[in-house]
Design a protein around this nucleic acid. Structure first.
Length: 233
DNA sequence: GCGACAG
DNA sequence: ATCTTGTCGC
């Protein structure tokens, strides 16, 4: 698939923050997608020694969750990790992986937040705009807001509230296990985001698309570190 | 100023 | 994110 919105990435944190303030207005929080046939999950892993990052994206047939394609890309991270500016660190590599896809996903699950962000523009929102695709943010911890504790049973939900606004849903994906945080990225309502995230569960805490993408890039990183340790790279 | 802080 | 093995529990 192709990146629809081209922007420069060599920005300073200050410039990045300003860009977020501008792009946030283009985010669509209501449903705007048809039948979901292909759903993708994306994640990234990197080697702290070299700052080389591996991005992975896996496309699944929905709702069967059968894999149909996976692609990867590697690149040196140029932007530092700054809470609230994660997208400027990870998006370049992730986009490179997405651009290798032959199958166009109808919706993308992103490892990180959507509107549950200080400027309501997390990486899920940003990637949604860049790829012009519906996206959902699936984070493992909170960036902003206060989470109401959901019931201890799998499937329980509770709101994630920030400054009086419900910006996400806390979802207990397994009995008594730490919940995940589901948020609107782009063109997906919070209600639909939770429904879809649930449909992407297969018995584990993390939804399959994101979890498998995580395993994918983790293996790529390990293989790289192995070769490097053996002085062959 | 202090504490919090996705991955 | 990454550093890290086994181990207790469902």
């Amino acid at each position: 698939m192709k990146t629809k919105l081209r922007t420069r990435w060599n920005l300073t944190p200050q410039e990045a923050m300003r860009l977020q303030e501008t792009l946030r207005e283009r985010v669509e929080r209501e449903d705007r997608f048809g039948t979901l046939q292909f759903v993708a999950g994306a994640d990234l892993a990197f080697d702290p020694e070299t700052n080389l990052a591996f991005a992975g994206v896996i496309v699944y047939q929905f709702p069967q969750l059968q894999e149909v394609e996976r692609r990867m890309a590697r690149r040196t991270l140029r932007f530092p990790y700054v809470p609230g500016l994660l997208s400027f660190r990870e998006s370049p590599v992730l986009l490179a992986a997405f651009e290798k896809l032959r199958v166009e996903p109808d919706l993308i699950l992103v490892d990180g937040h959507g509107i549950a962000h200080p400027r309501r523009f997390g990486i899920a929102c940003h990637l949604g705009l860049l790829l012009d695709r519906p996206t959902i943010g699936c984070a493992k911890s909170i960036l902003v807001g206060e989470a109401v504790e959901p019931g201890v049973r799998a499937g329980s939900t509770a709101p994630l509230v920030d400054k009086g606004e419900t910006v996400g849903i806390v979802l207990r994906t397994r009995d008594r296990v730490k919940p995940i945080y589901v948020t609107t990225g782009h063109r997906v309502s919070l209600q639909s985001a939770v429904r879809i995230a649930r449909q992407c569960l297969d018995g584990f805490r993390i939804p399959k698309p994101t979890r498998e993408a995580d395993h994918f890039v983790r293996d790529l990183r390990r293989a790289y570190q192995e070769r490097r340790a053996r002085n062959q790279i």
